[in-house]
Design a protein around this nucleic acid. Structure first.
Ligand SMILES: [Mn+2]
Ligand SMILES: [Mn+2]
Ligand SMILES: [Mn+2]
Ligand SMILES: [Mn+2]
Lengths: 161, 161
DNA sequence: TTATAAAGTTAGCTTTGGCTAAGTATTGTT
DNA sequence: AACAATACTTAGCCAAAGCTAACTTTATAA
């Protein structure tokens, strides 16, 4: 009830030069927007990568196995496969196993490589494998081309620019 | 129509010992579950960190400014502030500016520090600041304690274990 | 002090990605 | 061939985050 009601400080052209790079509201917004965009591709990336893995390991990708590996229910997989199909990444007929389209294969390959780079980078930093795999699962979706390249070159020759 | 219908290979106890760490379906599922959990905290973390920033910079945090910095609409901010309030992280009365609870302040401080560590680490790797800030905005939510410690120690003395 | 502008909220919609319960299809076993 | 077990789908639910349009409140300016 009696809480203070401060006005908006319209006298704030201060900008006390604290940040190095430009730290405008606009550029910060772009960063958050970019993260939101990355999250939208995340499901697709993890699915196609996993489907490719299963095909290599078992000769085929079964929804039940996808569900088990992802830790989600079978209906969730069914629904997400429909989305991936809609987006042209997988081929899936009812009660059949799952295949990747050419586009799906290409995406899976990119994701597989990126995943390995991130894991190997973390291991090169001294992180133990189980944790490297854990963190990579999330980090992989937020690594720019530049950062990925830096990770790769560090892995190959640590501490050299 | 005439698509092949492969059976499930029930003869697959092969496990050709390709991976170093344990790569069971169960441990892979745990990693994905952990990423999903991280995504649930992400909105809260970015909001409290930003609110703390705004209070430092402008003396207060206004919804309109939060919306601009995040690149989302004002109604989205209103709705998310209600969630943060429900979760005990902010104090917000209608038409007033936003305050952090003690819990919100504590979370903001953790996030602020983690953010700086990730950014500084990427810069130490040779990534330029604007890209470091960009990637950190996503990566920060997926870094374990161990990895964060490794980032910090690398920043302080690169290439030493 | 009144009018206008800006800020904030409410209502209602959307997509994503999770779930359970229940039904159908396929596969494996007798 | 019949039955049981497993896999898969469908239907229907939920919460999170986003949006626009319309309305209300607060702040600014005439
Ligand atoms: Mn992943
Ligand atoms: Mn993420
Ligand atoms: Mn962030
Ligand atoms: Mn941040």
């Amino acid at each position: 009830m009696t809480q203070k009601t401060p006005e908006i400080s319209s006298s704030s052209l201060v900008s006390q030069a604290s940040e190095g790079a430009d730290s405008t509201a606009g550029s910060q917004a772009e960063r958050f927007e970019s993260v939101r965009r990355a999250h939208q591709s995340e499901m697709a990336e993890d699915y196609v990568e996993l489907i490719a893995e299963l095909i290599v390991e078992h000769g085929e990708a079964r929804p039940v196995e996808i569900a088990e590996r992802l830790g989600v229910s079978q209906p969730t997989v069914t629904k997400n496969l429909a989305r991936l199909k809609r987006d042209g990444l997988v081929i899936h007929a009812p009660y059949r196993s799952v295949f990747l389209t050419d586009e799906g294969k290409a995406l899976a390959e990119i994701c597989r490589k990126r995943h390995r780079i991130v894991v190997n980078f973390l291991k090169a930093l001294g992180i133990k494998e189980s944790i490297a795999e854990h963190d990579a699962e999330g980090i992989e979706h937020h690594v720019s081309k530049e950062t990925l390249a830096a990770f790769e070159s560090f892995t190959q020759s640590p501490s050299k620019p």
